[in-house]
Nucleic acid binder design. Sequence first.
DNA 1: CGATCCAACTTGTATATACAAGTTGGATCA
DNA 2: TGATCCAACTTGTATATACAAGTTGGATCG
Lengths: 238, 238
Amino acid sequence: MSEGNRIPQYKKLYETLRRHILSGVYEEGSLLPSENELCTVHNMTRPTVRHALEALVQDGFIYKKQGKGSIVQKPPQDIGILSISGTSSAIGKQYLQTQILQKPTIKAWPKPFSFELSEAEEDFGCIYMERLRFVNEFPVFYDINHIPNINLPRFTSRTFENKSLFDILRTGYQVEIKGGEQKLKAIKADDKIGELLKIKKGDPVLYMERKLSTNREGFHIYSTIYFNSEKHAIFGNF
Amino acid sequence: MSEGNRIPQYKKLYETLRRHILSGVYEEGSLLPSENELCTVHNMTRPTVRHALEALVQDGFIYKKQGKGSIVQKPPQDIGILSISGTSSAIGKQYLQTQILQKPTIKAWPKPFSFELSEAEEDFGCIYMERLRFVNEFPVFYDINHIPNINLPRFTSRTFENKSLFDILRTGYQVEIKGGEQKLKAIKADDKIGELLKIKKGDPVLYMERKLSTNREGFHIYSTIYFNSEKHAIFGNF
DNA sequence: CGATCCAACTTGTATATACAAGTTGGATCA
DNA sequence: TGATCCAACTTGTATATACAAGTTGGATCG
């Protein structure tokens, strides 16, 4: 049984090109092979190739220019802070470390939860994890994540240090982020947040709550983020 | 000369459906006519119809479900705060007023500018405008906008009170927001911001700088925004 | 009556093709 | 030489068609 064959051709091409862009096969600013070339090389027709390219445009990996070609853009860093479909980025290109404060564990959902849950989500419980991220060895943001524990085999035993949560979900479980909603506030740091982010109590902190929707119906990812914007800004492309 | 005929069919259908969704012809949660129906009604083929629907999905006006149809979503409020392509929204459905602090005027670009300008933008100067927005009669955000003064006839003599800047650009000048980048910070209010937003000096304020790119090459919209998150949060779909 | 099944719908993927429109570099012409 | 033009590329738009896959409601069967 080749169940992997169920993945549509345009998506395979998308993954191939994406991988090649991220690994540097296609340099920033250079041209992708033309649509017709991609057709012959991958043995598909132009609408199919264009479907893959549209997804890459959508996710910010290329932009197109009529008469010219598809131009490779700066690959977004996969940190999942702002913006959509894994095309997120943050804090330029500085040295970034991730510390897992709480390894993924299966829990019940918190009793009062900031978002309304779907039935399936409620029934299955959630996977909980906390991370603290450092830029140049200073703590910059702290995030709390809730993921429904639905059809994610061996998820809690995976390694997450220095890996993108979204990449794991997309390539390992075919879970793609389709969009979402978020609430943003500037708040005063309380004791706990001040200690974690190494700032004074009362200093301004960027606070956000996010609900990301995926290609699985009723499957959302919930995050709460505290960001120390004293020395850095959150930078997002969309 | 019917130069308006240059607008592609899929875009016309997009505008038509968008208008009908926003005006309530299609209610939230209800189904759009099926793709085949739209084909016969508008006399086009399915790929063309699908092209229009993809754009609507992209902008958050509908979502699709295989085997079922295209489902109308809550029309985003056109306030242009977060997120992309005019599909932005803010602050739920409360009563919102806009006060123009500085009507659009033609100026030179500020000498040190937060973003790098393209050549054309530099040469033509910019249109400057400031707005203060109120929710339930409390000032909530203050935004400063710079738009390049390139091929925007009669722009400064238009009325902007209670109108969407992005709608005017899209329908009046075929300028579409394609994406952008933004920097987010939580900062302390200074005297001026405190007075405008009616909060205490030193209170946390959400600060953002944005550069939006459009379908016109080298044509960007630059905004600086101060948001009072004491009683409200910025709410964004993407 | 109630469960099952299926036909008729829906959207998703893909092929094959055609022409329009923007870009570019080389051949041509003065 | 230097400017012009055009052929050969590129992507954009559109048609016509086919089958796969998910959804739904009604006919059928026990």
